[in-house]
Design a protein around this nucleic acid. Structure first.
Lengths: 200, 200
DNA sequence: GTCTATACGAAGATAGAC
DNA sequence: GTCTATCTTCGTATAGAC
């Protein structure tokens, strides 16, 4: 979410930190946590080199936690927009559509920041809890929509976990293949699973 | 697959290379490709330091390709054993059971070698094609079992993609959470999806 | 085949001037 | 807040002795 303060002439204090966070999210998703250097983040965000430890006193681990939180929100935003109808299928399409666009727009270089960080151990990233919270946030939002559409609460929770894991997995498989076939298949099968759950 | 040659007294030529490959597969799965150094592989496999470039002239990229192939086979083995009955549900249980055991036995440090390599770009790993082939191999084997159980060929292919992506995703989420809940949910929902596909 | 030694660059992180 | 300079450790990879 971008907050614009009316009439502000100078850049907000958080500008540099935000740009670093955004670039870190992109690069961690593309190259992984260990595969991305702080120098890469500086170069990608065009921010001052000497100030990264001023903005992120906790070093790379703090940057990873912020990047994961940012990425979690960036994925949740289109889902939340679509959730206003209360239709879980619309939510699924917004969710899958976000990744289809990210993959094709980047020439299949984009990847999930959250998954990339979660794929490396806590000792390296220091961001395991943030990644787990991101997965849980997506699942909870989707489960709420499913429950609102008449799916039993426990069934909705399981189906939401299936959606989170399959979509995150489909992003990786699609990237490896260089096409969106895996994402297409997952989207269609999840839609069928939602329809079946609503009937029962 | 492990081949034991009867009566062989000395270690086979491939012994050191195999141990390096196995350790690389474990460590890439746990720490990611960039997060694992060749020194880590040497230490974990207790192999001679000076010989890694003798066995893997292509360097770390060649090691990654071999590790991915090895990991692909290690996951396919329990699936193939269960597939002898031709029951896709038994295959699913063997598949999920393999990961449940790997996660709990390792204190939730184990991870998917294939996913870890696929989550980093080709320019870093040099193993994108091997990862894509591993995903495709699992999906094709599962799709064949589904088709043998009466699921239309195209539906079977889509459902198999759902299974591959969801299980790989569930391993990451389970690791981040420190429990097998995501894997449990995915296994149960995939079982329901298989049952629904056989009815239609 | 395996060894030691090392090249060469980059990693994360810090110090202290301004 | 941002700079430059630097510390220390580590990365992959290679050379050449044995």
């Amino acid at each position: 979410m971008i907050v614009v303060i009316a009439g502000e002439e100078t850049a907000p204090k958080t500008n540099v930190r935000d740009r670093m966070t955004r670039s870190a999210a992109v690069l961690f998703g593309e190259r992984g946590f260990s595969g991305t250097g702080l120098r890469d983040v500086i170069a990608h965000s065009s921010t001052p080199r000497g100030s990264i430890y001023h903005h992120f006193a906790g070093g790379k681990a703090e940057l990873a936690r912020e990047a994961v939180r940012h990425a979690a929100g960036a994925v949740a935003a289109p889902m939340d927009d679509a959730a206003r109808d209360g239709d879980p299928v619309a939510m699924l399409h917004a969710w899958a559509g976000h990744w289809r666009a990210a993959l094709t727009d980047s020439g299949f270089r984009a990847g999930s920041t959250v998954l990339a960080v979660a794929a490396e151990p806590e000792e390296q990233t220091g961001a395991r809890a943030a990644a787990a919270a991101a997965f849980a946030g997506w699942a909870d939002a989707f489960a709420a929509a499913l429950h609102g559409a008449g799916v039993r609460r426990k069934k909705a929770a399981r189906l939401a976990t299936l959606a989170v894991t399959a979509i995150e997995g489909a992003v990786v498989v699609s990237r490896a293949r260089g096409d969106t076939l895996a994402l297409d298949h997952v989207e269609r099968e999840l839609e069928a699973a939602i329809a079946a759950a609503r009937r029962s």
